[in-house]
């Protein structure tokens, strides 16, 4: 019955080692992760989550499903889960590792943001802060309401996804989203090595397709294997908490600390964006109180270059 588990110190060190690389390579790591999955040993076993919520160890080859199976699996989602994100505005220092990790993972262009770090203030003169803004994965999503072809939809685990293979590019969802969370592939998307032969993965939205809509997916491909989203893992400042509301637990992407969601929210006076619209977001914000750094006016432009003055409103 009793069994000795690996001392956490060791595992933490291991984690830190991995973490060191993932921070260091920020934008590159996620891409490489995808590429290396194409060349790694097929015998390697990886944890996989079945649609009924069980974690199994399967061969990597089993991950290579055909498009149809992938589509069905991706549309179903994970049973019993309700994924939520908590963004601690007091921690965000505009490092933008989340943005670059996300763009790398989802093969996006520099101007395409699944997650965008905004500089904003609540009312005039109340002070600016950095506000990472992913898709809110609303429980009353205005975007899926208007889709004419079921291309964007909500899964049972709360994630709102897009089916690139079905989207007709009418952009009604972009117009309907009050959070401006959606982007469009106006031109031929940015293709990465291996994209030509890749089977389309709805949970990663890769390869991107010209003339279709794309947006934050809460890294549904990572959640399936029990890993935190790309942006959450990439943050060096402990801004993101991510977890399952049904378990009432969220895990910090930087420290990997896990806490009670309800406690975290109520202790900090959490809020959601534009609650008056009734969209019921799955993303919570903790107020930017007790910041341990100074807000720096000025902005990095979409290429990550310094810009003299932010444009607000």
């Amino acid at each position: 019955m009793s069994k000795k588990i690996t001392p956490e110190a060791t595992s933490r060190r291991n984690f830190l080692k991995k973490f060191g690389i993932s921070v260091g390579t920020a934008s590159a790591v996620s891409t490489l992760g995808i590429l290396s999955s194409c060349v790694t040993d097929d015998e390697e076993k990886v944890p996989m989550l079945t649609t009924d919520g069980k974690v199994i160890n399967g061969k990597k080859t089993e991950l290579k499903l055909n498009l149809n199976e992938m589509q069905i699996r991706s549309r179903e989602g994970l049973s019993g889960k309700k994924f939520v994100m908590v963004i601690d505005l007091a921690k965000c220092k505009n490092a933008r590792k989340c943005m670059s990790a996300c763009q790398g993972a989802h093969h996006l262009k520099p101007e395409q943001h699944h997650i965008n770090v905004l500089q904003t203030e609540n009312a005039e003169g109340t002070g600016f802060y950095y506000q990472p803004k992913p898709c809110m994965h609303c429980d009353n999503p205005p975007c899926t309401k208007v889709c004419p072809v079921d291309a964007t939809f909500k899964r049972k685990d709360g994630i709102v996804l897009i089916d690139n293979e079905r989207c007709i590019g009418c952009r009604f969802c972009i117009a309907a989203c009050p959070y401006s969370a959606r982007v469009f592939n106006w031109e031929e998307p940015k293709y990465y090595e291996g994209d030509e032969n890749a089977v389309y993965d709805m949970e990663l939205n890769v390869p991107q397709k010209k003339g279709t809509v794309s947006k934050c997916l809460f890294s549904a491909d990572r959640l399936r294997i029990g890993k935190l989203p790309y942006c959450v893992s990439a943050c060096p400042n402990g801004t993101y908490w991510f977890g399952d509301a049904n378990e009432d637990a969220v895990t910090n992407g930087t420290s990997k600390e896990t806490v009670r969601l309800s406690t975290l929210l109520s202790d900090n006076g959490a809020y959601t964006l534009l609650p008056e619209l009734g969209t019921k977001p799955s993303v919570y914000y903790l107020p930017p109180k007790d910041r341990t750094f100074e807000y720096k006016a000025g902005e990095l432009n979409y290429l990550g270059e310094e810009e003299p003055k932010p444009q607000h409103g």
Partner: peptide
């Protein structure tokens, strides 16, 4: 409307996968 579509090649999706909640289907 067709000219505005990103993927006019998929116009048949409106009939294959039409979603009754969408005002676009009502409009079509």
């Amino acid at each position: 409307i067709v000219v505005d579509m990103g993927r006019p090649d998929r116009i048949l999706n409106l009939f294959l996968h039409g979603r009754f909640q969408s005002p676009i289907i009502w409009d079509v």
